[in-house]
Design a protein around this nucleic acid. Sequence first.
DNA 1: AACAATATCTGTAACGTTGCAGGTGCTTGT
DNA 2: ACAAGCACCTGCAACGTTACAGATATTGTT
Lengths: 367, 367
Amino acid sequence: MNDKAKSAESGSLRPPDGRPTLKTIAFMTGLGVTTVSRALKDAPDISADTKQRVQLVARQVGYRPNRAGVRLRTGKTNVISLLLNTDEQLMGFISDIIYGISQELAGTPYHIILTPYSGRNDPMDPVRYVVETQSADGIIISRTEPHDQRVKYMTERGFPFATHGRTNLGIDHPWHDFDNHAFARLAVGSLAARGRRRLALLAPEPSLSYHQHMTDGFAEAVAEAGLNEIPFKTAWVDQPIDDIRARVMDLLNRPNRPDGIVCGSGTSALAVVNAIESCGLTLGREIDVATKQSTKLVQMFRPQLFVVNEDFRLAGRELARALLGSIASRPVRDLQSLSVPDCVVGPEEEAQLFMAKPAELAPALRS
Amino acid sequence: MNDKAKSAESGSLRPPDGRPTLKTIAFMTGLGVTTVSRALKDAPDISADTKQRVQLVARQVGYRPNRAGVRLRTGKTNVISLLLNTDEQLMGFISDIIYGISQELAGTPYHIILTPYSGRNDPMDPVRYVVETQSADGIIISRTEPHDQRVKYMTERGFPFATHGRTNLGIDHPWHDFDNHAFARLAVGSLAARGRRRLALLAPEPSLSYHQHMTDGFAEAVAEAGLNEIPFKTAWVDQPIDDIRARVMDLLNRPNRPDGIVCGSGTSALAVVNAIESCGLTLGREIDVATKQSTKLVQMFRPQLFVVNEDFRLAGRELARALLGSIASRPVRDLQSLSVPDCVVGPEEEAQLFMAKPAELAPALRS
DNA sequence: AACAATATCTGTAACGTTGCAGGTGCTTGT
DNA sequence: ACAAGCACCTGCAACGTTACAGATATTGTT
């Protein structure tokens, strides 16, 4: 009856799965498929009346664009890929990052896809895979290195990405980072306030960007306070927990053992405390420990710990925000953020909080 | 020159992104697109010689099927969706599940997509979304309930899925589960062997399937050993950690307080121990705790704990295996597995291991 | 009245893939 | 010599979407 009826003849109006397509709506409204498509994306050459009608019907029948159709036609996947190193136990906090990302992605058409990789293989492999097969519109990476090849690669190709951690390549790219320099200063400050004089740092792997930040902040604060640094370069925070424990026990059996330890991660703090107690020492008496924590678990473990909170959900949100901005070609400067810790939470019997000195206070989160 | 040259005329031979398609290979080999497609999937009506030639060229140019093309044509997404409850702190172990899943998926064309949801909304929402929009070929769910609506829904629609945890619906579906019944029995056994007589259980939420398994195993073992159960029904393992701590402190201040506690999760054990010590009690002296752990962290925290290991990486592998099998229409019986713990690891000064009694020993993993 | 501009709508083709219904040439059986 | 069968290959059409280049009707201009 309708002049659009013929377009309904070729091909089924409603696919067997019952999902409405543009054609379904076109038939229902008596319009052309193109018109429906353009009406749904609020194009300027469609009358307000038609748009409203189409959108009403679309909502009514529960229309959802077919992702494969869009992707095939436009190349847009509406997917962002989270690269995950699946090697270490260290993966613990990724659940919080995921939570943050999905918070930020709620209400957008984006899906999160996981691209796991092992550090035993070339870290470029997963990046190349996603970029070459265009299986996502953008990538979030972590374990960023100062001269990160992945950053170079994606920048050269103009592929959107955001990094958890900064680089030192002279490339201006989207990132989010926790201020580990500030963390280390705060941690040292809290131990110094307890009267500790010989401090050791359990740092992240030297290849990672934040190794430098943390060791710099540590060295600076130790020097400023006139303390001694006990070198400890045999263990890193993301090593297996038993290894850390063993290395810390070695450290504590040295003639000049530290009376304060700064831990670059909450997980490793458990190993450190265990090592301390296995050596017959008591936390808070012969030695103190300041650490990062990403859940309240660490301090629930030993209330004597000095802790600085790192919020990985925030990191997830910021990374997603940065990546979406990058995909939308927003200026890179708006897509960089630093999360600056501003206090240490200590044992209840002690001063509850060790506040940062004014000079150390956080600049605005988004610089 | 070649009679296939004309097919190269319409449409670009190599898309601007440089990715080879079937058409590219068709041109290079002088064959038709259909032939190439069929040769690559080893169809019987293509000569061995041609297949080899096509496959060689395909490998050479790094051909990868365009996922959107395949998906549009066949409806197959080559994606599996992992449903994640993003509410609780409890998400901790999901990183291990992810690891296991990705291990099992390596070498397959499957991608993992995350579908987060909040328990504050209808748990059916994410399932409906995936099924209706066909954004995945299968779903993995956890926090399974005895009368899980999601299982019913997906079964009715013939949508492939696997559950972490069993149901009680009379529906035969793919699942993997940890034997929490056996866990509870082992835990009680280890505490009984220490001479503990009044035991309390920190169980999972009553709505979840494994609540029943764990409480049943607990009650059984307590009765068999002639011990007393101290009811404790105000806290569950996936509550906020501070809440658990507070409830356990209440429990310990009751006139008839327990001298042994079984914890249904490693995380909650930290809160329990903290509560114990906050009450002025000493772990291993007035009271003992047996718990599950999924990483060595828990026991590193307090070596006095009795722990049973739950391997979430194994769970991830089994779930992925079950789901792939389900997608491939393999018989459901091969897609169900139970992981049975067989020992408790205790404090070093004590008997190192509390072995299960023969009667409790694990049946084969895959029943 | 003729023409141009505007507002609104539409058909065609293409993205890459695969099911289908042939097609071609060669071998076999009678 | 001819049909039937076989081995192997191929066009066509369609999956759902959107860019593009019109088409049509209405209004404004001269």
